[in-house]
Amino acid sequence: MNHFEDVEWRKSSFSGTGGNGSGNCVEIAALSDGRIAVRNSKAPDAGTVLFTRSEMDAWIKGIKASEFDDLT
């Protein structure tokens, strides 16, 4: 069951651009308590990962610094 139906989900502009037709779709939503929710838009009821603002900030900084490039 999706407990986040009342939030505004935003899809990454890079979703589905892998070139292999996989249609990977990542969505995020800012929650009223300050956390950030992340889910797979193709399977929204499969689970949602929650981050604090500081956790999301660290994640984005790591991505921008290319710390996870070896995973793609």
Rank of each mutant, 00 (worst) to 15 (best):
R35D: 08
C25S: 14
S41F: 10
S13I: 12
N24D: 14
I36T: 14
R10A: 12
G21H: 03
N40C: 11
N40W: 01
S13R: 13
V38L: 15
F14S: 11
G16P: 01
L31D: 01
D45L: 06
L31P: 00
D33L: 03
C25D: 07
G19A: 08
A30E: 13
S13M: 10
G34H: 07
K42H: 11
S15I: 04
D33F: 05
D45V: 10
A43K: 13
N24R: 13
E27M: 06
N24V: 14
C25A: 14
S15Y: 04
V38D: 00
K42S: 13
N40Q: 08
S12T: 07
R10V: 12
G19F: 04
K42E: 11
R39I: 05
G34I: 04
R39T: 03
A37Y: 06
G21I: 05
L31Q: 02
P44L: 05
D33T: 03
F14G: 02
V38G: 02
A37W: 04
T17A: 06
S41E: 11
S13W: 05
I36G: 01
G23C: 05
E27F: 09
K11E: 15
K11Y: 06
S32K: 12
S41M: 11
G19V: 02
S41A: 15
R39G: 06
G34A: 08
R35L: 10
A43P: 00
E27Y: 02
S13Q: 11
G23F: 08
I36K: 04
A43G: 00
R35M: 11
G16F: 08
T17Y: 06
E27L: 06
G19L: 03
S22P: 00
L31A: 04
G19R: 00
N40Y: 07
V26L: 15
K42T: 11
N40M: 00
G21K: 01
A29C: 09
C25E: 10
P44D: 08
S12D: 10
I28L: 15
G16S: 06
A43R: 13
G19S: 03
P44F: 02
G23T: 06
S12L: 06
N20V: 08
L31K: 02
K42N: 15
A37Q: 08
D45W: 00
G19H: 01
S15N: 07
R39M: 07
A43F: 14
G23K: 05
N24G: 15
N24S: 13
R39V: 06
G21M: 02
A29I: 07
I36N: 01
G34S: 09
A37H: 04
S12R: 01
D45R: 14
A43T: 12
G19P: 00
S15M: 07
A29P: 03
V38P: 00
N20I: 07
T17P: 00
S22C: 12
A29R: 05
